[in-house]
Write a protein that binds this DNA or RNA. Structure first.
Lengths: 199, 199, 199, 199
DNA sequence: CCCTAACCGAGACGGTACGTCCGGTCTTAGC
DNA sequence: GCTAAGACCGGACGTACCGTCTCGGTTAGGG
């Protein structure tokens, strides 16, 4: 009975969408996050501001979409199809694949997370679409290692992923030290062995 | 010899400084980060905008100063003077003390880190003044544990702190799950033992 | 063919325009020129500053428009339709009509001319819209007087108007003496007869 | 008994005064009136703002003083010493001498008069120090012409000067037409003869 | 095959805040 | 006690974007 408030997705202009996402990504990467604005995206995409506001709630959401779309355009990593090897080697491979996808756009990812601190809606989208899923392969591998008895059975795979990824995001967002492939490998070793000396 | 461009700190008005920091903190805590503006701080502090721009480069820097000043005003518990107990217990105490200081202003801390993602100068100040120093007690305790043979000698204390704190900051900034004292304790246990099953 | 830089006048909001002009006039008359500011006009008119800057280059231009609009709203007495009388009488009538329109806002007119001294664009607008046209009736009457042989044929009507009006503007802008209707009449007599004793 | 509010002129530093006046004049002539500010004058003169505010009430007053000082430095016109010639010739000479002094700084003079429209104190100073006195020689010559019977005895010399100078100031301040020596001569002729045809 | 509703570009609008300039007052140190 | 220097409060500047809105024009589908 009530008139629908949401716009009809079928009538969405794919060219405009594409132009907007490309413009957002280009601005974010070329001039940095601070220079991104809805107004700027609209101008660069040759699009009315209205068209952006119709489909996205904020500039963060646009950039997130643009960034996610770019990641999906990549020659998709086939973690699933990979042969199962030893635990450490598999973790190195999994993190390495993710690393290859994002290593050239770390500042953009950091800016998105930064923006999400004052934008709960963006925070949710970011977690649901990008960050949450990205730890699934690690959690899966942890679970298989638990089944194989390599890892304590009562460890929570989600917490295990946090132990591993926490180091990475801390570097990305806070610590003024390099974040590179070698560091990732060290993170894996440290997470696997922990701090206590083993007998 | 060259004429200094920076203003003379001796002529700084301490009352203005105090009013500005208080206004910044009040705004940040009451209305949230997004509502903080140089203009708003100046108005609430009864101060010219120029006076703020003279001494701080950005609103982030003001809020950081305000936040740091508040932390230092606390009746400081000095971890160093504490009786040395067992490793896990000391870590629980150290993290607990830090936690007590920041637990009522986590969103503000998160916003500061978020802002720092697009503001390298703020990022540096934040690390130097707030975040870097906060992990020193943990690193110290790790070093003593290494001397005592509890922890592998070749582990880097800084990396050890990253293993521990990474989990905390990941929760704070990214993961949509609760961050509380119980979680901190779990972080310590996980970091100490690592993922691999011990024989 | 080239993209126009100027905004499209068709999209101009007539209500905003009206509110701006009224606010400008009210501020200029109530508080005096010095208290007029774009910011103040915008606030009083309930309008964004941008809307003013979009259509006017300076506060002087706004006030000029407001002042000119107010003059045109007056129940216009058309000198042209007036019965032709003797030269002096007609001049008295013409100056009197102009006088009636501006006598209650002389400081505003003076301020506009004052402002125009440092603003060539305003000076041009002021001359084109207000001051230049105001001497036309005098020039017309001079021309008819030349045709009737009352005035030397080789006198330039524009210069004649300058002789007459110069005295008036000198009083308005420079001389600290009263400018009133009686003075206007004396200006006419002096301009008509000149200084040299007639035989 | 009461402490004097006005500063003691004897303690005035002549070097500062000179530097201020020179700086004011240089700024006014080089960058135009709009770029003149107390702050700018102080910086250029190497003087504290306080020193300017102590001796002048406004930037207009400073520039007026600077301008007046410059005029007095000129090789002073000796109108008084001039041989008395015929009326028209003397007027041409008197106006010509004034013209020679100001012709290279007309915009500055116009700006001063413009500023005086919103600054009654400046208006008074301007009239007393510069503009009023400048018409004295003309009034004197008019009086002598009246005594000689060349000019109607009942004409007010002050009004006569207004008739003559009004044309000049109108050009300077309002009319977008050239103001040059030839024009001055025409002003004299028109003022002497008036508009009415002589029998 | 036309009508009408939604999309689209463009951009004007009321606002908020920006970072800068300057006005006029006050403080500090030096002579 | 004047001076150079400049910090201070305050107000306005002109600009950048925000998110909403209105305007024609185009496009798509249901009558």
């Amino acid at each position: 009975m009530a008139a629908p408030r949401t716009p009809d997705p079928n009538r969405r202009n794919p060219e405009s969408t594409k132009a907007i996402l490309e413009a957002a990504l280009a601005l974010a990467r070329d001039q940095g996050w601070a220079k991104v604005s809805i107004e700027g995206i609209a101008a660069r995409a040759g699009v009315g501001k209205r068209t952006i506001y119709r489909w996205w709630p904020s500039k963060g959401a646009v950039v997130l979409d643009a960034y996610a779309a770019r990641l999906q355009d990549r020659p998709y990593m086939n973690a699933a199809a990979a042969e199962e090897g030893d635990l450490r080697g598999d973790l190195v491979r999994i993190l390495g694949e993710t690393w290859d996808m994002v290593s050239d756009s770390l500042p953009l990812l950091a800016s998105l997370i930064g923006e999400a601190q004052h934008d709960p809606d963006l925070a949710e989208r970011l977690w649901e679409r990008l960050i949450g899923p990205s730890s699934e392969p690690v959690q899966d591998r942890i679970r298989r290692a638990q089944a194989a008895g390599e890892i304590t059975a009562d460890a929570d795979p989600f917490r295990a992923a946090e132990l591993l990824y926490g180091q990475v995001y801390l570097r990305l967002l806070v610590t003024p030290k390099p974040l590179d492939a070698a560091f990732l490998e060290d993170c894996i070793d440290l997470a696997l062995h922990g701090l206590l000396k083993r007998p």
